[in-house]
């Protein structure tokens, strides 16, 4: 780039980023503490706020491990086994990325709600899914479903099976091969996938708002607490909650950029089976 063309590009690019991202996010921090740190602390430690925080953590503690086990399992199946319909399983994993979060919520209501497909048997068994915690867990699990698979699968394809086969030849059982050989080599990719999954679960709004019923002190997660606080004109609580989640997002950002630095730009040929893996695609819906 010539010196003459450098400045216009800088000015346009940096001012767009500043106006769209930097200044707005900065202003949330400013507004949260506009009435002092104490006011923000009080707003975020009310019983309703603490309950929302607690529920968010509970949901994450259930949904993230479920998706981690599923993700590693599916990645192993897709990378290590050849079977008919593998391409279909591979494509189905990405469906949640193409569907609006509101539609995800609606779909769960239509399947597991009172008037839904499984409403009657569930009611007979005394299980409430919709407008209750199980529904929130399911909604969070759906929207964050692809992340572990898409982070682990390319690593599995890259490391190949040589070491696993060597370990098996030397007498290691499948469990030992997995815990001693496979798991250590996918560790980084797995950590990355789990980070993205957790971020998505903690920050999900659209899918959760439909299935939760948004009952304060009962089925309200942190994101719903923020939107309710905005509606109730309790701006300090809204901004304080937003700062909490924004700090989390900054941590995720640090993990993302560390991961990129570690593996560098990765190129995939057309024949590469992991072609569908890419972050823009990976992070499609919100």
């Amino acid at each position: 780039m010539t010196a003459r063309s450098r400045w216009p590009v800088r000015v346009v690019a940096l001012s767009y980023l500043a106006l769209l991202i930097v200044v707005p996010v900065g202003s949330v921090f400013y507004r949260a503490f506009a009435h002092g740190f104490v006011a923000a602390w009080v707003a975020i430690t009310t019983p309703d706020a603490l309950h929302a925080l607690w529920l968010t953590l509970v949901v994450a503690l259930i949904a993230v491990p479920l998706n981690t086990v599923f993700g590693v399992g599916v990645a192993l199946i897709l990378a290590r086994h050849r079977f008919r319909g593998a391409w279909l399983l591979d494509a189905l994993i990405d469906i949640p990325l193409a569907v609006s979060p509101v539609v995800v919520g609606l779909a769960l209501v239509l399947a597991y709600g009172q008037t839904g497909w499984f409403g009657r048997p569930l009611a007979a068994a005394g299980i409430t899914v919709i407008y209750a915690v199980p529904g929130i867990v399911m909604a969070s699990a759906v929207v964050s479903l692809p992340y572990v698979v898409r982070s682990v699968l390319p690593v599995l394809l890259e490391i190949g099976t040589d070491q696993e086969e060597a370990a098996a030849t030397l007498g290691a059982g499948p469990a030992a091969v997995f815990s001693r050989v496979t798991l250590p080599s996918i560790r980084r990719g797995l950590a990355y996938g789990v980070t993205l999954t957790t971020a998505r679960v903690l920050g999900e709004f659209g899918a959760v708002v439909v299935v939760s019923g948004n009952i304060t002190g009962k089925t309200q997660t942190m994101t719903l607490f923020i939107s309710n606080s905005v509606e109730n004109l309790n701006s300090t609580a809204a901004y304080a909650g937003a700062v909490l989640l924004a700090l989390l997002a900054l941590f995720v950002l640090a993990v993302m950029s560390a991961e990129k630095k570690e593996r560098g730009p990765r190129w995939r040929s057309r024949s590469d089976r992991s072609q569908s893996d890419s972050e823009p695609h990976l992070l499609l819906t919100g």
Binding site: I21, P24, A242, A249, L250, L253, S257, E279, G286
Partner: peptide
């Protein structure tokens, strides 16, 4: 830092993004 910042909208919960824009605009 600018390069890393590009991914912030991915990492930020959507409701926080909405509140962020509402607070400034």
């Amino acid at each position: 830092v600018v390069g890393a910042l590009i991914d912030l909208p991915f990492a930020l919960p959507t409701i926080v993004a909405g509140l962020t824009l509402l607070s400034l605009y």
